[in-house]
Structures are given as structure tokens and as C-alpha cells.
């Protein structure tokens, strides 16, 4: 069941000049949150931000009633959200959307790019609880864009690429040696990040017949399947990313790849 709760900001931890972790505390018990679920946060303080903004849920602590978001300041909404300080109220609708499926396969590759690494920690946790040890591949422009490496290491090996080569392999995630198709050993790929990155991965996956799930971040208004603004074209017609996604198997999408 979806909830609407007033949270209090319990911690703001800046990771670099435009990226931070936002912890929200609620007196109410939190419902079960699955990796890939998202929340719609109302940024009430800023009158120029009318609509809620969707954010992937980064982590959850059921004992302390805290949910965390990994946020990259990019536009009007995130700039205003970044002004919230400890103790301030934020109204949140959650948990929304579907989630990454638990893999049947053993060799799992999880790829995150940019702010798309947000759901990776919850995936790692959830998969570990279910006896799955994935490999993570995270990419960024420079070493400044690479986060959460130590945390993800708790759940599986972490590979890194940066476009300038300042950390890990030089290049895009799809140029990492794991993508050498002659010895690509993974049976399932999960990915979240910029659409061009996900499309490049989807292209590789479909060419090599590897099961692949992607998490989309289409622009949304309601987040609960009422406005029909966030649709993606699937083989069964337009579907709402907010309720029938955000996670889709690439075999169901009509992506031109």
C-alpha cells in the first residue's frame, strides 16, 4: 500500500559539490521497500517547484524508520531540495513503482551511471539476503563522479570506469573489459543511469541474448498512474513508468537500438 508521510530531514551528507545523501526520518513504521521503488517528494518551500519530484530510494533502515536518497543537483527541483536542512519537514509519497526482479541466474552484472547508482545499494542488500552476489560496474565522467564504492563492496565486487581515466578503466561503462563479448560471463544485467548508456547496454544484451532490466526516469507528474504523462512505448502499448515501471525488461520495450 502506498503511503503519504511527513518526514523530517535527519541528515544531509554532501559527497561532493553537487551530490549528497538525504536521510529522512518518520515516526511511523516504514512499509516494505524493494530495490527500484521510488518516492515522490514535495518540495513545498519553493513555490516555483509545483510538482513533486521522483527519486529512487537509495536505502532504508526499518529499525530507525529512515529512508535515504542519493541526489545529484541537476535542475530546479533538486536545487531547491538541496536547501532543506536537518529538522525540516518533507512530505513524501512512497513506495511507488515496481522493482528489480530477483535473479534466477548466478552471474549478475549491475551497471550504474551518474545518479543512476541510487538504487544499487538496496539491490546489493536485497540480493545478498537472497544469496546472490552480483558484480557492480559504475561509471562517471571523472573520479569526482564515482561514489558508494566501499558500500557496494559489501555486496559484491565493484568495477569502475571514468571517461577521463582518473579512476578505474578509461572510457564508458560499455568499454569496460567485462563487455568483451567473447568471454562475457554474466547471465543477467540490471542497469540504471542515463538513457544513452542504458540503450548501449540494452543493445549489447539483446545482441548477445542476455536478460536485461532497465530502470527508466521519465518526467512524471502524479507518480501514481493517474495523469499518464510518463509513458514509455512497450510491445503492449504505452505503459506508465510510475506504476508499470520504472523497471522494464528490455524485451518488452520498443526501444530503437
Amino acid at each position: 500500500m502506498k503511503k503519504i508521510i511527513d518526514f523530517l530531514v535527519s541528515d544531509v551528507k554532501w559527497l561532493n559539490e553537487n551530490t549528497y545523501l538525504l536521510d529522512l526520518y518518520s515516526e511511523e513504521k516504514l512499509p516494505e521497500i524493494l530495490p527500484g521503488n521510488f518516492a515522490e517528494i514535495r518540495i513545498e518551500k519553493a513555490s516555483e517547484v509545483l510538482l513533486r519530484r521522483p527519486f529512487s530510494i537509495h536505502d532504508v533502515d526499518y529499525e530507525k524508520n529512515i529512508i535515504s536518497f542519493f541526489i545529484k543537483v541537476a535542475g530546479k527541483g533538486t536545487s531547491q531540495l538541496a536547501k532543506y536542512e536537518k529538522g525540516e519537514k518533507l512530505n513524501v509519497i512512497f513506495p511507488l513503482g515496481n522493482f528489480f526482479s530477483l535473479p534466477k541466474e548466478k552471474d549478475i552484472l549491475i551497471i550504474g551511471g551518474g545518479s543512476g547508482i541510487a538504487p544499487l545499494k538496496l539491490m546489493g542488500k536485497f540480493f545478498k539476503e537472497n544469496g546472490v552476489k552480483p558484480v557492480f560496474l559504475i561509471g562517471g565522467r571523472t573520479e569526482n563522479d564515482i561514489f558508494l564504492v566501499d558500500e557496494l563492496n559489501n555486496y559484491g565486487e565493484v568495477f569502475i570506469t571514468t571517461e577521463d581515466g582518473s579512476l578505474g578503466e578509461k572510457g564508458l561503462v560499455t568499454q569496460h573489459p567485462v563487455f568483451n563479448s567473447d568471454n562475457f560471463k554474466y547471465k543477467k544485467i540490471y542497469t540504471c543511469g542515463p538513457e544513452p548508456m542504458m540503450k548501449a547496454i540494452a543493445k549489447f544484451a539483446s545482441k548477445n541474448d542476455i536478460d536485461c532490466e532497465v530502470s527508466l526516469e521519465n518526467t512524471m507528474a502524479c507518480g501514481i498512474g493517474a495523469c499518464l504523462c510518463c509513458v514509455v512505448e512497450t510491445k503492449e502499448g504505452n505503459k506508465c513508468v510510475c506504476t508499470e515501471g520504472p523497471v522494464f525488461n528490455i524485451k518488452d520495450l520498443k526501444w530503437q537500438i
Binding site: 513555490s47 516555483e48 517547484v49 509545483l50 510538482l51 521519465n218 518526467t219 512524471m220 507528474a221 495523469c227 499518464l228 504523462c229 510518463c230 509513458v231 514509455v232 512505448e233 502499448g237 504505452n238
Partner: peptide, 25 residues
């Protein structure tokens, strides 16, 4: 009959408002 509506993107937030072009999906 069933209507798929218009292609994405269908929504834009504007000053104190929003534009939609769902197209009766």
C-alpha cells in the same frame, strides 16, 4: 476504441502550472 495517446514527452512543468499533451490515452 483503445487510444494510445501522444508520444512521450507529454508533460512540462511551467511557471505555476503544467502543460500536458496526453492525448486521451
Amino acid at each position: 476504441k483503445n487510444r494510445e495517446g501522444n508520444p512521450y514527452p507529454r508533460m512540462a512543468e511551467t511557471a505555476s502550472g503544467m502543460l500536458n499533451a496526453v492525448g486521451l490515452q
